[in-house]
Write a protein that binds this DNA or RNA. Structure first.
Lengths: 237, 237
DNA sequence: TTTACCCTCCCCAGAAATAGCGAGGCAGGG
DNA sequence: CCCTGCCTCGCTATTTCTGGGGAGGGTAAA
C-alpha cells in the first residue's frame, strides 16, 4: 500500500452497522480529498442498498427519474470487468447528456471512477469516486490508488453482503442439471419442442423441468424464469 | 504492498499470450514458495479456460471424472463472495471425500485458498493457491498476502478476459427506450397484457416493440430476446 | 426536404405455452 | 429403510404468443 488506505481498510473491517458503513464512505472521501464516495448495489430481485456522500436530493431525484435505466455508468460497468473512468463512457445520447447536466446541477463532480463488483446470485454493486477537477489531476489520483481501491471496494462489498445476509436466510435457489439445461436451451431461443429434441427427451418431460425451475426461481412464466436464472448466474448462454 | 507481489503485478500486465499467462502462474508459485497456483474459469456450459501448475494428469482426470460437478471448492465459491480456505468448505459428502483423496493422490496439496471472481455475462473464475503444509503455516501465508492476492487474482482475470475478447467482435445493437422498457417488463415476469397496462399503451403497440426488439436482437422468440438483452447488458432487471 | 427511426393503434388465424391432474423408477442421505 | 429429490412419460382445456398484413403522426438528422 502506498497511501494511507492501509489503515482505512482496518476501519472498514470494524464496521458493524449501516451508520458506520455510511461514515466510512465519508471518511474515505476526506482521506482522498475528493467530493464524493459512493457504494451501492442492485440485486436480481430489484432491491437496492446504498451508502455514500451524494446529497439526498440527488439520490431522490435519481430514483424518481429512474435514472438507473439510462445512467451510462451503470451500463458501462455492467458490460465490463475493469473499473472505468467516466470519461471513457458513452455520453453521446440525448438522455445521457441530460442526465449528466442534471447530475452536475445536484453537486456531482465532473470526474468519476467506478469499480464494478459482482457477487453470488447475480449481485452487482458499484463503488464510485467522484470529484470536480481536471482530467490530469484525476488521472493521477486514480493511478496512485488504483490497486488499493480494488481492495477497498471489495471490503465495502463484503460488509454490505454481510448486512444483507442477516436479513435473508436464503442461499438462493439452485437448479438441477436437467433443469439448468432446459432453461439454457430456452434462453438460446429454442422452442420447447426443439429443446426436447436437443435433450433427447419428450416435450412433456421437458415441461416438467421448466415448471420445476419456475417454481424454484419464483418466476411467473418461462421468460421470467430464464431472466432470473441468467441474472442470478445460474445459467450462461 | 508488503511483499514482492508489487513487482509481480507489473509482470502480469505485460503478459500477451497464453504461454506467458501460464508462465506467470509458475512464477507466482515460486515467488510464494508453494505447490500450486491455478487460474481457471468455469462456464457452466462446459467451456473452460485455465492455466496453472497442476499436473496435466490431474487436469485430465478432473475432466474425465466430471469433478466439476462435485468439487466443493467450486460449489463453495459459487455461493460466496469472499475467498475461502478449503478447510472451511463442506467435505462431508461421500463424493467430496472421494474427490479429496483422489486429488491428494495426484499431487494436490492439502491446503488450499481460492478466490472467486465474477465478470460480465455470468463469467465465473477461480484463482487458487495450493500447498502441502500445516494449518498454521498456511493461515500465516494467507494472512500475509490476503489483500495483494485479490489484486493479483483480478489482474489474472483481466488478462484472461482480454484474450477472450479478441475472438469476439461484438458491436451490439441498441434498443429504443420503449423497446427496452417493454423487454424489461417481460424480463420481470409480466405478461404482454400486464406490461401494456404498466406502460400505459395498448397490447398491440407493445407487441410491435417486442417484435422490433426481437428483430434487432436477432432473437427467435420473446424469451430469446429477453435473454439476449440481459446478457448484452442492454436491460437491467 | 427527404429520409429514417420512433411511437401509437388495428385485425386475424395458427402455433405455442400454461395449469391442472396423473404415473413410476432410481439414487443419495439421515 | 424411508424420504427427498431427480428423471422420465402421459392427458386436456384454456390462455397467450407469433407472424403476417395494415395506418398515421412525430422528431431529428442528413
Amino acid at each position: 500500500m502506498t497511501t494511507g488506505l492501509q489503515d482505512f481498510l482496518e476501519d472498514i473491517q470494524r464496521v458493524e452497522n449501516f451508520e458506520e458503513f455510511q461514515d466510512a464512505t465519508v471518511k474515505l472521501r476526506d482521506l482522498l480529498g475528493i467530493a464524493h464516495v459512493v457504494y451501492h448495489w442492485v440485486n436480481s430481485v430489484g432491491e437496492r442498498f446504498g451508502a455514500g456522500t451524494y446529497s439526498s436530493e440527488w439520490v431522490d431525484r435519481y430514483l424518481e427519474k429512474d435514472y438507473l435505466r439510462m445512467d451510462p455508468v451503470i451500463f458501462g460497468c455492467f458490460q465490463r470487468f475493469t473499473p472505468v473512468s467516466w470519461k471513457q463512457l458513452d455520453w453521446s445520447s440525448k438522455a445521457a447528456k441530460a442526465f449528466y447536466r442534471d447530475a452536475m446541477d445536484y453537486g456531482v463532480g465532473n470526474q468519476g471512477y467506478t469499480i464494478p463488483i459482482r457477487g453470488p446470485n447475480g449481485q452487482f454493486a458499484l463503488f464510485t469516486l467522484n470529484d470536480n477537477t481536471t482530467d490530469d489531476a484525476w488521472d493521477q489520483l486514480i493511478a496512485r490508488n488504483e490497486r488499493d481501491l480494488v481492495v477497498v471496494a471489495h471490503e465495502f462489498n463484503k460488509k454490505a453482503l454481510s448486512f444483507d445476509a442477516q436479513n435473508e436466510v436464503q442461499v438462493g435457489p439452485s437448479l438441477s442439471p436437467r433443469e439448468a439445461s432446459a432453461i439454457t436451451h430456452l434462453a438460446k431461443g429454442l422452442s420447447r419442442s426443439q429443446a426436447a429434441v436437443e435433450m433427447g427427451i419428450s416435450e412433456h418431460t421437458l415441461r416438467v423441468y421448466i415448471e420445476s425451475a419456475r417454481h424454484k426461481l419464483g418466476a411467473m412464466n418461462t421468460t421470467h424464469a430464464v431472466a432470473r436464472a441468467l441474472s442470478m448466474g445460474l445459467i450462461i448462454v
